[in-house]
Amino acid sequence: MGFTYHLTNKKDNQATQVSFLEYISTVTKKVLITGSNGLLGQKLLDKLRNNSTYTVIATAKGVDRYLEEGYSYESLDVTNHAEVIAIMQKHKPDHVIHTAAMTNVDACESDKELCKKLNVDAVQYFIEACKQTGAHFIHLSTDFIFDGADGPYDENAVANPLSYYGQTKLESELLLINSDIAYAILRTIIVYGVVKDMSRSNIILWAKGALEKGQKINVVNDQYRNPTLAEDLADICVLAMEKRAQGIYNASGKDFMSILEIVERVADFWNLDKSLITPISAETLNQSAKRPVKTEFILDKSVKELGYNPHSFEEGLKIVNNQLNHN
């Protein structure tokens, strides 16, 4: 026997019987997450799947790797126009958090066709779908839209990408800016963290793992970033969703340091041998894609308008350590 609920029409004070699913749809917001198998995607599921305010639809290409309760899962290839439109029409989400992207900077340089499909064309498909459904679109972007010559950067700074990856992320931003949908662009820098099913590593886990094995590592000493804890990035996604934020927001960590200092602080935190670390210049790596030198972000707008409050780098390392100890 199904439960029924009574909704009262304020205008005529008449109560109407509705089913449980109909009732839930009146008190919850639907959020569709792309790239739900990734680091940020899984952190978003951690935060939203047991939140009674939201009905969560997780999407990624292939099978679900998160494998918990409290959400539904759909396989979705974001480069397939028909699939994007069909999923959006089926679920009609109130919000889309678009974390899916091609982020390997050198791979983007060598496979520009795939990079454009994932980073630009997919966003165009979602813009079309959001026009049809009225969904609010939250898009993840990057510090690599800047050349690193004159930071720190606020949200109004002039972009000048050095790599094809940065170029595609800037193109996707411009698509949204020139669209007439509701959107928020969240720009971030070097995301780190740990989830139970890691499809790829990040600088913190790489450095910790290598040093624990006694491996010598070369680390760039002439590039500077704000490393971003994945939980903090998930937090600002949720804040932007709850406020139905419009426009561009910086969404990085608050501590600014060289890549070398990031790794040295990892070594200090876990009491690892820093003599295994050799500082090198980025030029010696001969990477196919150019990287900006300094991409410090000014977070004032995100703090003031969204209530963003990222952890310090050491606090972030403590969170990662606790999670590693409990996995």
Rank of each mutant, 00 (worst) to 15 (best):
E68T: 08
K43D: 05
N104V: 05
K11E: 15
A82S: 14
S52G: 05
K43S: 11
Q42W: 00
N80W: 05
S36F: 02
K47V: 04
N50D: 11
H91P: 04
S52Y: 06
K30G: 11
S75I: 04
D12E: 03
A86S: 14
I87V: 15
K47T: 06
N51K: 02
Y66W: 14
Q17F: 07
I97R: 09
L21A: 08
D77P: 12
H91I: 09
T34E: 03
S72N: 09
D94C: 09
V31N: 01
N80P: 05
L21P: 01
V96E: 03
Y23I: 07
H6M: 12
I33D: 00
K29F: 03
L39N: 02
P93R: 05
Q89T: 15
A101F: 12
A58T: 02
A101G: 06
P93Y: 09
K11Y: 14
E69P: 01
K11G: 06
A100L: 12
Y71Q: 03
T103M: 07
I87P: 00
M88H: 13
N80H: 10
Q42I: 00
G41F: 05
Q14G: 04
V56P: 06
Q42E: 15
D46H: 07
G41N: 10
Q42K: 04
G35A: 09
Y71W: 11
H98W: 06
Q17R: 13
V18T: 11
G38P: 07
